[in-house]
Design a protein around this nucleic acid. Structure first.
Length: 824
DNA sequence: GAGTGACCTGACTTT
DNA sequence: CAGGTCACTC
């Protein structure tokens, strides 16, 4: 039984009748339309034809979107199965599903609702044979992808150092994002990667086909190829999906855009919701252009703007609006709010990253208690949003120390951990022994005495006979070709796989045939979890696999400090299986749904990246690390210049607009980068904030050093004072910043830093455009911190704190800016 | 074949 | 500060 083979309209009759009946009995039944503002209502009621909903941050777009779906169903325009709604994240899909259920109740069923990727997996499982795959294909993660590419690069006789697999992966991803198959890569681009880019891409696709595997990009790419090559099939889906809704349209890439356009071009009932100011996935191939050209693609499209913000206070909204106005080429929106007053955006500088974490920890506790006349804000209602995940560590360390409960969303993922990936490889082998990548991964983990040589022999035989590694290994065992201990171990390994595989098939023959024959899965697109009770035999099997393979034992016997944690994680992995009916379902879930948030339990502060925060809101938000190079990120600016900078600015905008009541931006003067202390300049975005909406907080000063100390060596201080005032509000901003310097704590620090007054250096040498002279504190890669006692030409005499006095080349010295430098 | 230490290089954001 | 790779040793 599956929904696709059924006439899609057959089941619809009863549903629409019910819907119609509901409608007939009920003018009051349309109460779900109440509470919408004018624009939202227009967006909900413009059911037919193309609609572009430009929805600013916090303007209630999810509400509009879900109400629109409810309206489609209630007016009888479509039954749920004829509606396709795509989102970008599983989180968004889940939320929409919940809200639709709230409006509709459970009676009427659910639309096709999921991420682009999860919808495509379901479709591709049905039509896999059209691109030369079987419906039980595996979805590779980045790790597998890289390993595969590395092999291909080696096979092509290229130096993998000069031509790293990562780079090729990026190139191929880029092509797939633009829906380019190897033969469609054109012109100069084929010359990428040492002239062999498209050649390797073709080889990679071949290899994937042989492995019956796809990577993430393929999910979209294959579906686009299929739709383009099979108009009849496309027509069927066009008929089926009569109404299409797309969330976060500004983040669609070309492949997704084509996919949507193919599906929508016949009936043109497509409603895209987006905000060009929140486009933050350009690096992943998203094309803001898609949203900008919507009206061209769908002539006569209604464009509806949602501009009333219900989330943030006046000052927060104003600050965000001014900041984003520095970007060019926006569609432009004027967000407004009826809320007056509230806290200004708060800004504070700290000596270093640890100090910043310490202060934020205390501030969170203060907010929780309720401070300065504010209502208490619970930990669940507070979040720290960082630019890059490595920034989270300082907060985790600090919060562990003070016992402040926190949850990390997104961070280093559970399913990406070494031991989990190994265990998953075992599961994959049990489900499909011919999974060569999984075989390679664990054939010698734990050690079975099967080193490079033995593995190479298996590879050779497999290639000669066109077998999977597993089958090749089995033959070699049967022929006794590998002797001694290794041979015996290999025999045990393949016999184990055979037995596990038999157990998997015996346990759930129905699902083993084709996981796609499951119409419920079409509706529960992103869940994968199957609540009904099952016999849990797959859990026992999983335990057996991990035991019999010796994998658990390997970690139990491991004496490294992290080993116990890994064993714990394996237990947790097995526990996670409880929510699934079988191993296959679990594997698919893991491939598609990488988020593992544990929403339960006591109240906790959330720590996450700005990217992960999109679509969320919190009464109190902390935005640490606003320093040039970190945020905006140096790499983004280097790689894509102004375009990159504007995307970073949108990220800043997303961050600020997450806040409802309190938004605190902070920066540190010093930060450890690559394990090395570096002085930091406040983010240029700070200069762009409108001073009248910003309150500058007094840094605590009792803890660390002062900014003035660094000023002498040209680092922080000079840049700080001179860096402000780029915008109209500059003067005000500068005045506000001056408050920082006038604060008592700051002054004291400055005094401390400059007293006793240093002798004016007689000679000044410029290193990396920073000057230092006799008497200055310096840092040397090898000898550490010290003080310059003499300068002579290129040579400096330095008294090092630990290494004693040395003569070194001035070029090897850097002005010291770390904690060690502060002379008190 | 496996274990060790020296070196190097890269470092963000994610479906 | 990581993790990965290489050369070297047992």
């Amino acid at each position: 039984m599956n929904g696709y083979d059924d006439d899609p309209y057959e089941g619809a009759v009863s549903l629409s009748q019910r819907a119609m009946a509901g409608l007939r009995g009920s003018a009051p039944d349309a109460d779900y339309l109440e509470g919408l503002n004018e624009a939202q209502r227009a967006a909900v009621e413009a059911l037919d034809g193309p609609v572009l909903m430009l929805a600013g941050a916090g303007t209630g777009k999810t509400k509009a979107l879900t109400t629109r779906i409810a309206h489609l169903i209630r007016t009888g325009r479509a039954h749920p199965g004829q509606i396709l709604a795509v989102t970008f994240t599983n989180k968004a899909a889940r939320e929409m599903k919940e809200r639709i259920a709230r409006v509709l109740g459970e009676v009427e069923g659910m639309p096709w609702l999921g991420t682009f990727h999860s919808v495509c997996v379901k479709l591709l499982r049905r039509h896999a044979e059209l691109v030369g795959l079987r419906s039980n294909f595996t979805i590779l993660d980045t790790d597998d992808q890289i390993r595969l590419l590395k092999q291909l690069i080696l096979a092509a006789n290229m130096d993998e150092k000069r031509w790293p697999a990562r780079q090729l992966a990026g190139l191929i991803d880029g092509w797939k994002n633009r829906a380019l198959t190897p033969d469609r890569v054109r012109g100069g681009e084929t010359a990428h990667f040492n002239n062999r880019g498209s050649e390797l891409y073709a080889a990679y696709q071949d290899r994937l086909k042989t492995l019956n595997a796809v990577d993430f990009g393929d999910l979209l790419l294959h579906m686009v190829v299929i739709f383009q090559a099979h108009p009849d099939l496309l027509a069927e889906y066009q008929r089926r999906f009569r109404y299409i809704l797309v969330d976060e349209y500004q983040d669609t890439n070309t492949a997704q855009y084509l996919w949507l356009r193919l599906l929508a071009q016949a009936h043109r009932n497509i409603c895209c919701v987006g905000d060009d100011d929140q486009s933050i996935y350009g690096w992943r191939g998203a094309e803001v252009g898609n949203i900008l050209r919507f009206e061209k693609d769908f002539p006569g499209a209604k464009v509806i703007r949602l501009e009333q913000n219900y989330r943030s206070t006046e000052h927060i909204l104003a600050a965000a609006s001014v900041l984003i106005s520095a970007n060019e080429g926006r569609l432009g929106k004027t967000l407004w709010t009826a809320t007056k007053g509230g806290e200004k955006l708060r800004l504070i500088g700290h000596w270093d990253g640890e100090e910043e974490a310490r202060w934020i920890g205390e501030e969170i506790e203060a907010l929780k208690r309720g401070t300065r006349g504010l209502d208490p804000i619970g930990l669940d209602d507070q979040a720290i949003l960082v630019r890059a995940s490595h920034q989270m560590r300082a907060f985790e360390d600090r919060f562990l120390t003070i016992g402040l409960p926190y949850r990390v969303i997104g961070g280093p993922r559970f399913y990406e951990r070494l031991e989990i990936r190994d265990a998953m490889a075992y599961f994959r082998l049990a489900v499909s022994p011919e999974d060569d990548l999984a075989f390679e991964r664990v054939v010698n983990t734990p050690k079975r005495g099967l080193g490079d040589k033995a593995q190479a022999r298996i590879q050779v035989l497999a290639r000669e006979l066109g077998l999977s590694l597993y089958d090749a290994a089995r033959r070699m065992v049967a022929a006794g070709e590998i002797g001694g201990k290794a041979g015996a171990q290999l025999r045990l390994f393949v016999e184990n796989i055979a037995r596990w595989h038999a157990a998997v098939q015996g346990a759930s023959p129905a699902t083993a045939v084709s996981p796609a024959d499951d119409d419920d899965a079409l509706i529960e697109l992103d869940e994968g979890a199957v609540p009904p009770a099952n016999d849990h035999s797959h859990i026992r099997l999983a335990e057996e696999i991990l035991e019999e393979s010796g994998y658990v034992e390997m970690w139990v016997n491991d004496k490294t400090p992290e080993a116990p944690g890994r064993v714990e994680n394996l237990k947790e992995l097995v526990k996670a299986l409880e929510q699934f009916e079988n191993l296959q379902g679990f594997l698919e879930h893991v491939a598609l749904v990488m988020d593992n948030d544990s929403g339960e339990g006591e109240a906790k502060v959330s720590i996450m990246t700005l990217h992960a925060a999109k679509g969320l809101e919190f009464p109190a938000v902390f935005l640490p690390g606003w320093e040039d190079g970190l945020f905006p990120s140096q790499r983004a600016m280097d790689e894509t210049g102004k375009k990159g900078l504007e995307e970073e600015r949108r990220l800043a905008y997303v961050g600020i607009t997450r806040a409802e009541e309190i938004c605190t931006i902070s920066f540190a003067g010093n930060r450890r980068v690559y394990g090395q202390w570096q002085s930091q300049l406040p983010s240029r975005f700070i200069d762009e904030l409108p001073a009248r909406h910003v309150e500058v907080l007094t840094p605590p000063g009792l803890y660390g050093g002062g900014f003035g100390a660094a000023g002498n060596v040209g680092g922080f201080g000079g840049g700080f004072g001179g860096g402000f005032g780029g915008r109209d509000d500059g003067l005000e901003t500068r005045a506000a910043k001056a408050d920082v310097y006038n604060s008592p704590g700051w002054k004291r620090l400055q005094e401390r830093a400059s007293a006793p007054p240093r002798a004016r250096p007689t000679t000044v040498r410029t290193v990396d455009s920073v000057a230092f002279g006799v008497g200055d504190r310096v840092f040397h890669q090898k000898f550490g911190y010290g003080e310059v006692i003499d300068l002579d030409g290129d040579t400096a005499a330095v008294e090092f704190d630990k290494a004693g006095s040395k003569h070194v080349k001035a070029g090897f010295l850097k002005p010291a800016v770390g904690l060690d430098d502060v002379p008190f």
